[in-house]
Amino acid sequence: MTTAPLPDDDSRLLEQACAWLAKLQSGEDSAADRKDLAAWRAAAPAHERAWQRAQAVWQG
């Protein structure tokens, strides 16, 4: 695992992905939230990479 700092944009996207993940894990997400997450992930390859990284961190 690398400890190199993330570029600002990557850090911001990872924070957003973590917020999405926390929302989903809370059990308080709605169908609209899941649709919005899918749209966010599809909006840019960097979003999907951030999502994958957040999931990897969550799973430990």
Rank of each mutant, 00 (worst) to 15 (best):
Q55W: 06
L13D: 03
A56Q: 14
P45T: 06
E28I: 07
L6P: 10
L6H: 07
K35S: 10
A4R: 11
P45Y: 08
A50S: 11
T3Q: 03
D9W: 13
L24V: 11
T2R: 11
K35E: 09
G27D: 07
P5I: 09
P45A: 12
A43G: 10
E15K: 03
A4H: 05
G60V: 10
T2F: 03
D36C: 05
D8N: 13
A19Q: 07
P7H: 08
C18Y: 00
S26E: 00
T3A: 01
E15H: 04
S11A: 14
E15C: 02
R49D: 00
G27V: 06
P45N: 11
A56W: 04
A22F: 04
S11C: 08
L37R: 14
A4Y: 03
E15V: 00
R49E: 01
S26H: 01
S26N: 01
Q55L: 12
R12Q: 02
Q16I: 02
A42E: 13
D36Y: 06
A38M: 10
Q52E: 09
R41Y: 02
L37D: 03
T3Y: 01
K23W: 03
R41C: 01
A56H: 07
W51L: 08
Q25D: 09
A19S: 04
D9Q: 15
W40V: 00
A4F: 04
D8H: 09
A46E: 13
R34P: 15
Q59A: 06
E48A: 13
L14K: 06
W51Y: 06
A4I: 07
D36P: 09
G60P: 12
G60I: 12
A44W: 10
G60M: 10
A22H: 10
M1Q: 03
Q59L: 10
A50N: 05
A50E: 02
D29H: 14
K23N: 06
L37C: 13
L37F: 12
A42R: 14
R34Q: 15
S11E: 11
R34C: 12
A22W: 04
S26L: 05
T3W: 00
L37K: 13
E15W: 01
E48Y: 07
V57K: 13
R41D: 00
A54G: 02
Q16W: 03
T2K: 11
G27A: 07
K23T: 01
S11T: 12
P45E: 13
T2N: 10
L37Q: 13
A44E: 12
R41M: 04
L21A: 01
W51H: 10
A19K: 07
Q55E: 11
A43M: 08
A17Q: 00
D33P: 15
D33F: 14
E28W: 10
G27H: 07
A44N: 14
W58A: 14
Q52T: 08
K35P: 09
Q25W: 04
W58M: 14
R41S: 00
A31N: 11
A22P: 12
